[in-house]
Design a binder for these strands. Structure first.
Lengths: 236, 236
DNA sequence: CCATCTTTGTGCACGCGTTCACAAAGACAT
DNA sequence: ATGTCTTTGTGAACGCGTGCACAAAGATGG
């Protein structure tokens, strides 16, 4: 993760546990699919299966939001969609800037999941002057030096970093200085941010390495000793 | 997450906790940076700062691997790089197929973090015949129907899914049937897989929604009551 | 109106992960 | 060799998250 409390120690006020917050988007997606099929109600069992979680966990998660179910029947799909959307803050508009318009940045700009939720791409930024003006996902790429004015003019509070690792910290500093308080970081670096700024990190390489670990474990289950021998290099 | 035990209930044998495994790549990255700067040793305090974690946590994590430090001095950087690499299974070669060569798939194919660790892109696959043969990151895109033979010939055990949501489950089924036992899923869908297959999911939209939640919380801290009023639609 | 049946909401126990705090271990100087 | 000083490795306490299991709530039918 990064410095500067990514999550507050214990969510105060109406205290929804962090683990629950992380699952709400999952439920929301499943519910949206049901809504599109005009399914009026759904039981915790069905919805849990669709979201890939335990039904008891789902009920407990919903209990943090309030008592929105009807015993003997289940949950009203539309009502629940609204409640979760509101809780997540998706009923309002979130302007977002994406910095670094390489393949990844372009993929993010084209991602449909943005607009459907409350997210709106306010601008695409890149340091390469050759990219400036080119259309990506219908939006013109603008030069990184416009960052400050764009963030201020559009009241952007969320920034997405899709730059190379070397540029990530500098971009972060500029975003934060301009007023951004939430950052989604795709660059493989630990970002340092002041208190009050949230950072979430998506790291491809890490995910693969975790898979490799389990894969090795699986492959080694047949053999006697999965770990190798003493390394050639000894500690000082 | 997905069906089919993503993580084993309690890691048996030399039992490295799942949370620790997830941090090992982080340490490895920080250590690699130190190694490139020819730093010989590092203390838990310094390394923890570089990785963005607590130093006590780092020491406990390392204690699961064995006693690789020297009291009063710290850890030997090269030695630790080797040990963690071996533990994660990065000393061997992991052939990977990437399915779905849109912007995201192309970004993944171009991602440098692959080759530097033990990962080798064995093939890029896409269902679009128009893409077939086009070079992406120096590799030719091949048609999805070659999936089975490619997986078999290269003994691929890890698959990366970067297709639209609609195609993800079918691709997963084919990958699993062909012998893949670890899947990294970028499509916004819950995948169902048989036991023994690991799935990890990276979901952009979910990360943004979590940020939005905290952002809303931050914005509402000034006001009296951050949650809105009673919704217009009432439950059945 | 009463009985039955379904499904929610939650009290409780358990296990994992985190953090503190300190004793043991070794380096290094004298 | 002895003492001091640094840093590791870990025992123990705590808190969060998960899942069981059941009582309460309400729908539904007779």
């Amino acid at each position: 993760m990064a410095t500067g409390r990514s999550h507050r120690p214990a969510t105060r006020s109406r205290g929804i546990p962090e683990a629950t917050v992380a699952r709400l988007p999952l439920y929301l997606r499943a519910l949206t699919a049901l809504s599109e099929r005009s399914v009026p109600t759904v039981s915790s069992e069905e919805l849990a299966a669709a979201a890939g979680v335990n039904s008891a966990k789902l009920r407990k998660d919903f209990s943090y939001l309030g008592s929105y179910g009807t015993r003997g029947v289940g949950y009203d799909v539309e009502y629940l969609v609204y409640q979760i959307s509101r809780e997540l803050g998706l009923t309002q508009d979130w302007p977002v800037v994406i910095v670094g318009i390489g393949n990844l940045g372009a993929a993010l700009a084209n991602y449909g999941g943005f607009a459907s939720r409350g997210f709106r791409v306010a601008a695409l930024l890149d340091a390469d002057p050759a990219l400036a003006g080119r259309l990506v996902a219908g939006l013109p790429v603008r030069h990184i030096d416009e960052l400050e004015s764009i963030v201020a003019d559009n009241q952007v509070s969320i920034g997405v970093i899709a730059t190379p690792a070397g540029a990530a910290q500098e971009v972060t500093d500029r975003l934060v200085a301009a007023g951004v308080t939430s950052i989604l970081n795709f660059a493989p670096t630990v970002l340092t941010v002041p208190d009050g700024v949230d950072v979430r990190k998506v790291d491809l390489s890490i995910e693969l390495q975790i898979l490799a670990f389990h894969e090795q474990r699986k492959a080694g289950e047949d053999r006697q000793d999965p770990d190798g021998d003493v390394p050639a290099v000894m500690p000082a």
